[in-house]
Design a protein around this nucleic acid. Structure first.
Lengths: 152, 152
DNA sequence: TGGTTAATGATAAGCATTATCATTAACCAC
DNA sequence: GTGGTTAATGATAATGCTTATCATTAACCA
């Protein structure tokens, strides 16, 4: 069902990092959690709830390292704080509910192609992009809340 | 050539805000500057250089108010700090040079259409979106620096 | 023109994140 | 396996951007 911790240690090792206990636990959390997108604080709390007292400084450091090692990818979603998700190869963009915070993923090859074309036309060598759509999801509670907000 | 300050005061007034001196100067800065995208700190420094001692707290407050009044729009560009630009009606997205920070604007109706379509298919009512492309611009200095960075 | 009420500015507080540094634990050679 | 080297950790201080507080000041309207 889940990757065992040892595979986990392999992944970390082959990224040129020592397979320390905090790093193993953090990576495992991303592999096992149902909530794909986690902030540093989320990771800290989850591990603590699981009896793992890992310092917040370590969490921040490891998340940054994992991002550089391409084990995780980072996003901002306009919230003022970074969230990370497991990098499973296929690139995708995000659709975020402004009410409940739910995040859906999508991939549109045509949009990707157009982006590349726009960059090329302007002499930019495209390295990465951030595309996030913000709206109100199909949950009736969200639609009700959105409607209430719109009328002050 | 430039809008006179009085028009300026009109815009502020019709947004339901008092036409105070700090607000007039801040809006004028955005209308006159060549650098379209300014952070709170940028605004503070520019006005100071122009002999205008406006408190940083006021700058932050006014930028937020102008954004709510749709006189300005806010962006993040992954930099950890907000930048604002004059809202002149037509929506556009951004192409940002990761080396020199230069920002170009673009608009692609096809991308806009596809975004709308994606949101609809998933039952989202699209409210806004953030699309920023990051790369290396055509400036030879940037390309050289990017190349140097890529090899540590 | 004066009174009311909101705006300002100095400063403190807040929040996410990074830096510092003494202690601890992984790894590699033996 | 064991020990020594070197990097990782964790507590905490520091930073950077932004918002809150509150006494003082200035816009607006009657």
């Amino acid at each position: 069902m889940h990757k065992p911790a040892s595979d986990n240690a392999q992944d970390i090792h082959s990224s040129g990092l020592k397979a320390t206990w905090p790093r193993i636990r953090i990576l495992r959390l991303f592999q096992q959690t149902t909530q794909r997108h986690l902030s540093a604080e989320d990771v800290y709390r989850s591990l603590l709830a699981d009896g793992e007292e890992i310092g917040l400084a370590t969490i921040y450091r490891v998340l940054t390292q994992f991002e550089q090692a391409r084990l995780l990818t980072r996003h901002y979603f306009e919230s003022g704080k970074a969230v990370y998700e497991l990098n499973e190869g296929q690139h995708h963009d995000h659709l975020v509910c402004m009410i409940c915070g739910r995040v859906e993923e999508f991939f549109d090859p045509e949009i990707e192609r157009l982006q590349q074309q726009i960059a090329e036309r302007r002499g930019f060598e495209l390295r990465e992009h951030a595309l996030s759509l913000y709206g109100v999801c199909s949950n009736p509670a969200c639609q009700a809340k959105a409607w209430a907000e719109s009328r002050g």
